[in-house]
Design a protein around this nucleic acid. Structure first.
Lengths: 250, 250
DNA sequence: TAAAAATCAATCAAAAACATTAAAAAACTA
DNA sequence: TAGTTTTTTAATGTTTTTGATTGATTTTTA
């Protein structure tokens, strides 16, 4: 039997049963214990499964949870700085939209005491907002598990009944030609509509996002003020020709 | 049986029952007492559960997240029974509405594995629903701080774009003359609309709510099936004349 | 409160599963 | 085909897991 075929069988059985015994795999593939062991070792290295004593087990969304955590710690310092700076643009009387995401989340701590109303599509944001005594409206819609963001038709419909003084949006890519982008088209649609409904839009991003572009376009550079942690002179000139920029670190 | 499989079973039973006896686990896994003890020790170290004399219990942390639920440990046992019973009415293929509130929250643990779609106005419900791999839509709207329920114009608008096979609603008062009632008129409006949009409505309430009435009316008795933990013969006859009733404890 | 029952942690030997190695078989190449 | 590489198997000693037993501790019962 071919190695590839054994691997297929192993992963198939695993998908069905969540965990499989080594002996079961020996029977299913008519190969020796050693061979299966080697297969498991290899598949584990490829992150296709997790070895356990006596067999193998599916590895599930623990990765995702971690990835969210990891992501939220990556460039955290920069994100906090950007968030604090962005919050300084919020004035009493404003009605603002807060996009789901780690950077906008960090803004909340700096909104305390301001006389504002917040609308958001981030479920994670809700607790923090209420904690800081900020009147909050949540969009409806389908819940994206990984980021706990509300998306889809429901979110868009809900959005349309609001209008904002300012909106604060996260982006994964900022590019002179391609504008602001994000990997998930569903998210892009929500971000774009929120910007349309705002008097003024702010895009929050750390410098690692500059000159990058991802799948789904949110808007052109001109359509928002970019808030970024740092930016060298050369790039700054190029970008300033196209859009308003606020650089945090001076 | 593999260690990983035992651990999975243990955590699954625990998620359903809150606490499990060691003996139950011995039977469920067909392994020895010692083995289970070792498993529990290990899982406790991994912060997956808490050992108690005679077995294991869910981590306290989960309950703490639910600060509102905490205080309503009043009649918790009854609520859990009602919730489990109510969940048995949910069938594959159903699209259901889950009202915010403690009793409906307890239903979620019993919905795992069912092929359903859930719409809810309870922000607290979201984590549990996603945890149990249930596709979930959230209504939008204003957030009532105390109960983390979505209410108001936004919630009503969002609701109107759905329709349900079944809805499960909590009520604070059940009265032969005044029907189903709840203290908050905003909540009543959402509950009422959800019922209108459902093929069939279930009201969940423990016996302490019987013959009580509170400020805002949700609906007449006839408009829903009442699920209650217990009910003496005399009252049962009176109520049965007006509406369908399911009594959990027989 | 004291005795009885249940549950517990600790220990141990048997069994199962493990990684490692070397030899055999198969696949490939020149 | 002969030589080389890759894959598989079998054998080795080591490690992990397991269930039974012990006496200590906790909970329940009377």
């Amino acid at each position: 039997m071919l190695t590839a075929e054994r691997h297929r069988i192993i992963l198939e059985l695993l998908a069905e049963k969540e965990v499989v015994k080594l002996q079961e795999l020996v029977e299913a593939t008519h190969s020796s214990e050693s061979t299966i062991r080697r297969d498991l070792t290899q598949l584990e290295k490829e992150k296709k499964l997790r070895r356990v004593h006596g067999g193998a087990a599916l590895l599930h969304q623990k990765r995702e949870e971690l990835s969210v955590l990891e992501k939220s710690t990556k460039n955290m310092k920069e994100k906090k700085m950007i968030a604090e700076y962005a919050a300084s643009f919020v004035q009493d009387g404003d009605c603002i939209y807060l996009d789901a995401g780690t950077t906008t989340f960090e803004m909340i701590a700096h909104l305390r005491g301001k006389d504002i109303v917040v609308v958001t599509n981030g479920i994670m944001h809700v607790d923090a907002l209420l904690e800081h005594e900020i009147p909050t409206y949540l969009l409806g819609g389908f819940i994206k598990k990984k980021t706990k963001a509300l998306l889809g038709r429901g979110a868009l419909n809900a959005l349309e009944s609001y209008s904002f003084d300012k909106c604060f949006i996260g982006a994964n890519g900022i590019h002179l030609d391609y504008g602001y982008t994000t990997p998930d088209p569903e998210e892009a649609m929500v971000k774009r509509l929120a910007m349309k409904l705002s008097q003024h839009a702010y895009i929050l991003a750390d410098h690692s996002k500059l000159n990058e572009s991802t799948f789904a376009k949110i808007a052109d550079l001109e359509e928002a003020t970019l808030i970024v942690d740092e930016l060298d002179e050369e790039l700054l000139e190029l970008y300033e020709a196209k859009t308003a920029i606020e650089v945090v670190k001076r």
